[in-house]
Write a protein that binds this DNA or RNA. Sequence first.
DNA 1: ACTTGCTATATTGTCGACAACTTGGTGTTA
DNA 2: TAACACCAAGTTGTCGACAATATAGCAAGT
Lengths: 214, 214
Amino acid sequence: MNQPITAADKTYIALRDDIVEGRIEAGSKLSETELSTKFAVSRAVIREAINRLESCHIVERKANVGARVVALSPQGLIELYQVRESLEGMAARLAATNMTDEEIADLGALLQSHFDEVKGGESYYQEAGDVDFHYRIILGSKNKHLISMLFDGIYHLVRMYRVQLGMAGPRVTTAYDEHKHIVQAILNRDAELAEMLMRRHILYSKNSIEHKLS
Amino acid sequence: MNQPITAADKTYIALRDDIVEGRIEAGSKLSETELSTKFAVSRAVIREAINRLESCHIVERKANVGARVVALSPQGLIELYQVRESLEGMAARLAATNMTDEEIADLGALLQSHFDEVKGGESYYQEAGDVDFHYRIILGSKNKHLISMLFDGIYHLVRMYRVQLGMAGPRVTTAYDEHKHIVQAILNRDAELAEMLMRRHILYSKNSIEHKLS
DNA sequence: ACTTGCTATATTGTCGACAACTTGGTGTTA
DNA sequence: TAACACCAAGTTGTCGACAATATAGCAAGT
């Protein structure tokens, strides 16, 4: 589903964005009839969209009762980052052996462009840049399950926390250094180290966020 | 969805079992109309069931074309076990800090009962016993995402590989020792070690299966 | 013979209506 | 007043029909 084909695809994306960006507030109930009029599609389409949102753990459904948007909590964020640490650590490990030399070179180039931005003090682009960095490594793992779990599953939730609890970096410059070391480890084809560094990177990121919440 | 409520629930489970147990063969196409007559429900119900199967990566769907059961391959099995290693390793780590003393005691009792079975040479029950062991540790992690990813997502696929490529143990007695050491680490609240041992345990298991396939 | 374009057919996607269920409220009874 | 049964309104679950799309086969042209 790289680009949406069916009405259900488009509705799923639109609804997901509404939730992630906070236009539909966390914890609120999703009425099928209401949404079907809002998006001008039949309830069947809304139902399919909600089912997909349930697979990403963005909504929770109970039979014969309905669907609610998940509630955000510090505990939930911690659990999310535990899973991220685990999966992205493995992704980095696999990337160290499975990425082609060319892909690694591209990754290095991306890092260089980030360095230029950081030097110029553009912390906004760093946000998207960080995401892009992680994307490439996850894709570099060449592991279908890993890729889909992170992209289709966890990343939307991470983004939801980011947007709604309002966390645009900083940690920009230090994150850059961590990225650099990870790329170096991948370049050296050191799977063990790449995993370790990625896990640390995400752990630090979690700690930084936790600190900001308290 | 501990026990099925709606027709979609039941159909999902029935269809899933048919696929996992091999009564519907891997790689084959799923016709909605055909299945709706077979299970005596409407196409809407079949559609929901297929959507759920897609979330567990048991079937793949293409818009306007249809759904196919995934094809099993050695490569696919390896990727699956890489994810398992990552997630269950984290589960063991978290279980070491989050399980209650009582839960750990129960786990020890389970292990003891396995020991008796192994001594008696009942390798059949060991199969279910192994699953049960892993279940408890995953639950012990108390991490919602981890739990649902493994139970709702990966375990059905693992079972599908087990059944269709016909792997009833052995590795029974050695696996028992590994389980014992993991429980010991959890008992000592040694998260680091528990993760390491669980990852090794799954890695060995993967190697054993790979060896059998070649 | 090979390609191109069309048609026929079958399959999936979408819709509106009906059935089953949950929930909150009302009235009755001890 | 408390407890229970029941009813009514609204929501979700399920169904059958129709619309849109893909695929295979055939026909025509080069």
